[in-house]
Simulated scan of single mutants.
Amino acid sequence: MSILVDKNTRVIVQGATGRDGSFHTRKMKEDGTNIVGGITPGKGGLKLDTIPIFDSVSEAKEATGANASVIFVPAKFASSAIIEASDASIPLIVCITEGVPVLDMVKIYHLVRSRSGVLIGPNCPGLISPGECKIGIMPAPIHRRGSIGVISRSGTLTYEVVNCLSNADMGQSTCIGIGGDPIIGTDYIELLELFEADKNTDAVVLIGEIGGDSEERAAGFIRRKMKKPVVAFVSGRSAPEGKRMGHAGAIISGGQGTAAAKVAAFKAANVAVADTPSEIPGLVARQLERQ
């Protein structure tokens, strides 16, 4: 079992015929994802290999029964693409695109939620339930099917942690990159709730970074609500104040959002915190032994 996606997820790709879109559409299909269509305005009726291309999301949904969309379009069109998917009542929208304006995201955030949709991203690697479905750009070969949930603000750090877990024979139920922008569609707490309710997820690894207070809020939720063990890692411990480190949301301002504050919050919630990614499998194993 997994959260958000499984082998029955029917995926359409917005921007499927572009350079990045076509490459990752083929990779997702190779990795076992049920890609049922692509969207490029003006190219309806064409095909990408065997995948039909449609002019609009609504047309694609009507023809294919799609229940998830992934967005690979340039930043200036990404906001409109998210809105189009929401207008078509696609329940799960994953936006890979980086550079979506913050003011646009303020409106989109509330729009998608008002329609009971789920938005992952933007500026994220997507998600994968190994052996069932991959939506986005995560490297499927390093993943293994199993019972460890993974949530992360960082893309490449996710891959490093997953590789450590897989090498320790700790497979994953679902791995989700939520995105590193200041405003994203889905945060840690919502996904922790889903993992807590998933009977086949035994533990969760949470990968955080400097900036904002999402990790502190997640720690509070874990302390109050989580029964399953959680192991955390926080990157950016040596980041200077006021300097953005990679992601737009990864910035310490006014002494808030520091790695030290996040680590302290997790420890106060009895969450085991790793100093390096390689320590995570061992901490997960010890937490599970205590259950």
Rank of each mutant, 00 (worst) to 15 (best):
K225I: 10
N270E: 14
D198I: 06
T174H: 06
M105Y: 06
N167P: 01
Y109K: 15
R244Q: 15
V70K: 00
S253P: 02
G177I: 01
I128F: 07
Q291S: 11
N67I: 02
V102K: 10
A260Y: 02
G236V: 03
S253H: 11
V118N: 11
T17Y: 06
L92G: 01
D31L: 08
I183R: 01
V73Q: 03
I3L: 01
I93T: 06
G99Q: 02
S238C: 11
T64I: 05
E241F: 05
A250S: 15
I51W: 07
P141W: 08
E209A: 08
S152V: 02
I135N: 04
T17A: 13
S152P: 05
P182Q: 01
M138V: 02
I207V: 13
L194T: 01
K29D: 09
F266W: 07
D181N: 10
I137N: 11
R244F: 11
I252H: 03
R144G: 13
R10F: 06
N270M: 12
E132F: 08
P139Q: 05
V204G: 05
D213A: 15
S58V: 11
V11T: 13
R145K: 14
F195K: 02
T258W: 01
G32H: 09
D55A: 10
R217A: 13
V205L: 07
G65N: 11
N163Y: 13
G257Y: 00
S278Q: 12
I210G: 07
N163H: 15
D275A: 15
L4G: 00
E209R: 08
A16H: 09
T50K: 12
G179H: 06
Y109R: 14
R113E: 11
E216T: 14
K47H: 14
I207L: 13
K228D: 09
S22G: 13
E84C: 12
I252Y: 03
R145F: 09
V102N: 00
G45D: 11
V106H: 10
S89A: 15
F72Q: 00
I142H: 07
L192D: 03
R223M: 09
E30P: 13
Q287K: 13
S235G: 09
Q256N: 11
D169E: 12
N8G: 10
I252N: 06
L92F: 05
G155N: 01
K134V: 10
I222S: 00
A75L: 08
M105D: 00
P130Q: 03
L4M: 05
G246Q: 04
D20A: 13
L127V: 08
I189V: 15
G131I: 05
I128R: 02
G254H: 07
I222L: 03
R145M: 12
I251L: 07
D198K: 08
G177E: 02
V5I: 14
A248P: 00
V100R: 01
E98C: 03
D198E: 14
R145Y: 10
Y188A: 07
T17D: 04
R113G: 14
K29C: 08
T158H: 04
G282T: 00
E241Q: 15
E241A: 10
R244G: 13
R223N: 11
